[in-house]
Every structure is written in C-alpha cells, then in structure tokens.
Amino acid sequence: MDSATEVLDQPQIERVQLEGLVVMKVIKHCQENFPMTVMGQLLGMDRNETLEITNCYPFISPPTGAATAGPDGVDTVAFEREQHRYQREMMWCVREARIDHQVVGWYQSSGSQMGSFLSSQWIETQFNYQINLSNIVCLVYDPVRTEEGTLSIHAYRLTKKFMDVMRKQDFSSLGFSNLSVSASTIIEEVPVTLHNSSLINAALVELDYADEFSGANDVELSRLSISDKPVLEQSMDFLISDLDALGREQSKYSYYMRNLVRGQGQLLERMRKRRAENANRTAKGEEPLQEDDDVQQMFEKEPSRLDTKILLKELDSYVESIKSLASEGIVKQYGVSGVQAGEE
C-alpha cells in the first residue's frame, strides 16, 4: 500500500475550480495567437481537495526567427534568459497587485492541432512541475472547437504511476508493464468546475442581457450553422498522419523484435561458450567472467516505447473528438431534413 506516502504527501487535489477571469484571459491570449501554440502560468492556491485557479499570465513566445537558429543555438539561450527575467518581473507585478502568487500550473493552447497537446515535450514540462510541486495541472484550451461553439478547456496531469516510470526513466515495454502503465493511464483528467465572485456574477447579469449577446448575436443560435465539415476533415487528416506515424513506430519495433529473436540464438551460443570458458578458468583457478552482461546489453537496446504510447493516446483523443463531431453532424442533418420536410 502506498497510503503511507500518501499521508506524507500533501492531499491530492480532486477537482479544479476555475475563475471566470482565468477562462476569459486564457481565451483572449490563445485566440489572439491562433494558430500558434502559446503557454502561460496559472496562479492560485490549493485548498484541501480543490485547486483554485484565480489568475494567470501569458508566457512570451519565442521569437519567430529562433526556429532557424537551431535547438541549441545562441538564440535559444538568450530567449531562455529573457523568459526568466520576464517571469521574475511579472511575478513582482503580480505580488504588487495582491494577486495570488502561488504557481498552481500552466496552460497551453492546442493551436491548430485539433485538441492534441500530448508530446514528449509536454510530458517533460509537466513532469518537471509535478516533481517539485505535487498539485499541478495543465489547462489545455482548444481554440478550434471553442470557435465552433463549444468551450473546450480541460485540466490534465500525469498519473502517479506514470510519474514512477518517469522517475526511473525506463521506457522499455517491461518498464511500462512492471508499473502497469498503459497509454490510457499516462495522463488523467481532473474535473473542472467554474466559480465567480458575486461581483463578477453581477457583471455577467449585465452582459447576459446586453445586445451583443442576444438576438442574432446569441451563441446558442450561431451554434446551429452547418459549417464544421472543415474541422472534421482536418481532424481526420491529423488522425491519418498519426496512424502513419504509429505504423512507422510499429515496424521499427517489429524490426527490433526480429533482431532480438535472431540474436537470441547467437546469444545462447555465446553464453554456452562463456560457460564452458568459465568452467575452464575455474579449473585453472582464475576468476570467472561475467555471465550475463550480454543479456543486459540486449535489454538496454530496446527502443523507447514512450513515443508509441503517446501516439496511442493522441489517436484515442482524435477518435473521440471525431466521433463527437460526426454525431453532431448527424443530428444537424436531421435538423435540416426537418426544415426541408416542413417546406413541402
């Protein structure tokens, strides 16, 4: 039982309480930079089992020329330094304005990627947060689906089991299965609730009845437009390219497996020889040689399974969103047919 460590740890949060302010700020920042993927810091506090996110600020995005400078060019270093300075100054401003200044996570827009965010980089970042602070979530905002009329903002974190895998840095299939981690248990979603102060609610009442939000401007009605075909098509494109990538990973793996099987015969042969040699050496009174270092080597050569797991998880989320889009499309179809039937 890991309940002993549980007690020592801070209580694990079970839900995320999001302020309306944060929702609006995230939407503004991500939508302005669409289709670029942007990130930001979430501020708030954790209270018992609820993580309250009360404010946030955007991170600066790397200069557009940095991509040409290469991953470890001088530009990246300079950018990182600038990012640090920026964050320090921003935190000072946040404290001055008496805003909660405890870091509770970060947010990211999925850009034009149709809600996909999972990558080894994402995992790396989230792992670094989670290893230092136990209650950290990443809010993922999908600008494309929100533009289509459904707010898509979800909180994710790495599961405890996967954190163990990350700590061991063992991404072989054995490493995953030892800790019983599968693609679906790399990350988990934390349920999000919304909260607003009475004052903001007063402002909302005012806005709710404003001209800009009623009549022809009502979101409820603009949602009925039959225009999400391009979104569906794009999602399918991403799905197909990810499936290709998965296929490549699979063939890489089966190539490794083939080699492993082929190598096993040679290995056994070598081990038999080694054993015979050792028997010889002991007979001569010499130190026996290591018997299974070759076997060890064989294992270390297994390619990292992490990318495959990530791809599987990604594909799963694509499939889910396509399913949801398709069923939405079917309902709209019947709606249209209803209108046509009424015409006749």
Binding site: G20, V23, M24, I27, K28, Q31, P143, T146, E147, G149, T150, L151, L194, N196, L204, L207, D208, E212, F213, N217, V219, E220, S222
Partner: peptide, 12 residues
C-alpha cells in the same frame, strides 16, 4: 470575439 462569446455563454 466569437470565442469570448462562447466562453461567456458557459459562464452565463
């Protein structure tokens, strides 16, 4: 903006 409207709708 359009996305902001969607967000506000959820808040309403």
């Amino acid at each position: 903006g359009k996305a902001e409207k969607v967000g506000l709708d959820v808040l309403f």
